[in-house]
């Protein structure tokens, strides 16, 4: 376990400088795509906590993305707040709404919970579309400002990307710390066997609510970065299908694996942008690929890699056994196999 934990940190340590410098040559569209990838990774990371670690099926992450994005847009555009303050408030708000949504999770599990959260998603979407005085309705909210920190303008494509990267790094470390704290263990106990967890003294109520709330807070944080990234928001990107795609993202990457969300988000948000050249067909290709992936490996892409690695080590072991066999066999009498092997 402890070796695994160090590998996670090592990967972060190697990845961050690469991600800091590598996109510097990209044009604004390229920077937008990599920024989107990071933002969606944050949202997926939150859902991965709720679904992958705590085992609570939520179809509301798209709604939390929307709550974060709208809260940030309203606070910055209408109230004139600076972005960092709006970010904190949006994240906090999502946390609180997450606690409230967590209450149904105390009563129902699995598909029932999926349906409750699905209902919540639809309601959030309806509010965003209908409450024009607050959200701008279908016309949306425009001119969402990008951040200025201590007099430095972070609004340029690259500067904003790096801001997003720093926030992503911070949230990734928070998540890492969380998962390796006793809380993280408790979340997993919740997923594996709630009754046993309860009998061992884990406060199921508190941890279920927390798993939901923290996952939602990550969704809100992602939304709060999404709003200045796209600079214009309307209800469409936060419809129910957004929650479906986020769930597929987590599962495609590998639910319950630490870097799964990043792999999944690459797959769900960057790949479609690369496939945009295919016209309207990219979503079809995407859905078909996810369908095949889920069928081939329900543990996601990282699960596929794990399986491949297992397979490789098995083959290696088999090769070692095969290499050892002639020496063992030669002590006895020559067999067909080592006759064939020796020239």
């Amino acid at each position: 376990m402890s070796r695994k934990l160090n590998t996670d940190l090592l990967i972060i340590l190697i990845a961050v400088p690469i991600l800091w410098f590598a996109p510097s040559g990209l044009k604004s569209y390229g920077l937008y795509v990599v920024s989107l990838w990071l933002v969606m990774s944050i949202a997926a990371m939150g859902l991965n906590l709720t679904l992958g670690y705590a085992g609570l099926t939520s179809l509301a992450q798209g709604a939390f993305l929307g709550i974060g994005a709208y809260a940030t847009a309203i606070l910055t555009v209408k109230a004139g707040w600076p972005l960092p303050a709006a970010f904190l408030v949006s994240t906090g708000l999502s946390f609180l709404v997450g606690v409230v949504l967590g209450f149904p999770a105390l009563r129902v599990k699995h598909h029932y919970l999926a349906f409750v959260t699905l209902a919540f998603s639809v309601v959030v979407f309806l509010v965003a579309r209908n409450e024009q005085w607050l959200t701008g309705g279908v016309y949306g909210l425009a001119n969402i400002p990008r951040p200025v920190l201590f007099g430095t303008d972070l609004g340029g494509g690259l500067a904003f990307y790096r801001t997003v990267l720093v926030v992503t790094l911070a949230l990734t470390l928070v998540m890492w710390w969380l998962l390796h704290s006793p809380w993280g263990r408790a979340f997993q106990a919740l997923r594996e066997n709630p009754l046993r967890a309860a009998s061992l003294g884990v406060d199921i109520r508190a941890y279920t609510l927390l798993a939901f709330a923290i996952g939602s807070a990550f969704g809100g944080a992602a939304g709060s970065l999404y709003a200045p990234l796209v600079e214009f928001i309307d209800p469409a990107p936060f419809a129910l299908s957004a929650s479906f795609v986020l769930l597929l993202t987590v599962v495609a990457g590998g639910a319950g694996s630490f870097f799964g969300p990043f792999v999944g988000a690459f797959f769900s948000y960057m790949l479609p942008e690369l496939l945009r050249a295919t016209g309207g067909w990219y979503l079809i290709i995407y859905a078909a690929v996810v369908l095949v992936l889920v069928m081939v490996s329900p543990t996601g892409l990282l699960g596929l890699i794990d399986r491949w690695r297992d397979h490789q080590s098995q083959r290696r072991a088999a090769a070692i056994r095969a290499a050892a066999r002639p020496t063992l066999a030669s002590a006895d009498k020559p067999t067909l196999e080592n006759q064939g092997a020796a020239p």
């Binding site: 099926t57 699995h110 598909h111 999926a114 299908s241 479906f244 795609v245 769930l247 597929l248 599962v251 016209g279 309207g280 067909w281 979503l283 079809i284 995407y286 859905a287 078909a288 996810v290 369908l291 889920v294 069928m295 329900p298």
Partner: peptide, 28 residues
């Protein structure tokens, strides 16, 4: 049939992907 052994949730998720697939295929 192939998904059933993985349990309720992976199968439900596969049908979600199928719903996106059918919808987009009908649209395009």
């Amino acid at each position: 049939e192939p998904m059933q052994r993985h349990g309720v949730l992976p199968l439900a998720i596969a049908t979600m992907a199928l719903s996106v697939l059918i919808k987009e295929a009908a649209k395009n």
